[in-house]
Amino acid sequence: MADEMPTWREYPMAAIILEPGSTAKYKTGDWRSRRPVLDSSKCLKSKCARCWIYCPDAARRVDEDGYFEVDLSHCKGCGICARECPPGAITMVEEGE
């Protein structure tokens, strides 16, 4: 492992990170024990967006039909979206089920 890592010459000066938003490459989805499952049929027609605005992990994306799908590679499974969804369209399901 250590052999593959950059030498001191290869790091950017002062370890300044030049690629913005690069944590996106890190899949925090691994942390999850429960995942949110959306029943689109229950989602409000107006797409209230609570699941999006209340997600601490920026793990909600708008799909082609305007629904907020979950980005499972980053969703940590906190469950806020399920609790906050007004029509109860999101349920938390144990991983592996």
Binding site: A2, M5, P6, T7, W8, Y11, M13, A14, A15
Partner: peptide, 9 residues
Amino acid sequence: EIYTEIKKQ
């Protein structure tokens, strides 16, 4: 893993 290299630099 990187601190030493940055200090060397």
